[in-house]
Amino acid sequence: MSKMNKIKGKFFTGSNNSKTGEDKPSMSNRCQRIGINDIIKKDIVTLSEGDLIEDIINVFTKHRFHTYPVINDKGNLTGVITQNLILKIILLDIMPQTDHTDLAVKSLSNDAKGIMDPHPVTVNLDSNLCDVAKLMVKHNVNQVFAVDNGRLVGIVSKLDVINEISKIRG
């Protein structure tokens, strides 16, 4: 019976823990205690607003990340460029006709500022692991960017979140 309760305690958070006699805080309590500073990767590859499409393609082939943040001269996060976006821009003529207008307008520019998606999902440095996980699920994104007054500080991927949650589950 106690074994059964232990298994339950792992899968069902909240009041179940008290019934098992354990003092472990619930999963939500534990993930709220982990600040974003503990999980963000600060050593990140960024693009500058003035980078040309050829430079951007080089970055994609060199580093193999899915998404790159775009920053301005002050180090502020201004947008993102994903693998999907760069593929759409390069292969515009084979993309669905419904996407053409937006992509064609973007392709009028040949730098990162012109083609980037200007509204990435961000979190402040006082956020915690729970906030980040909720945002990722809510907005269906694979990474969020940590900013301090608009300045890019780091990035958290969904895999980082899963790894961290895996650790606190024991």
Partner: peptide, 8 residues
């Protein structure tokens, strides 16, 4: 920005 998230 919050109204222009790709998903929305």
């Amino acid at each position: 920005p919050l109204a222009r998230i790709e998903d929305i």
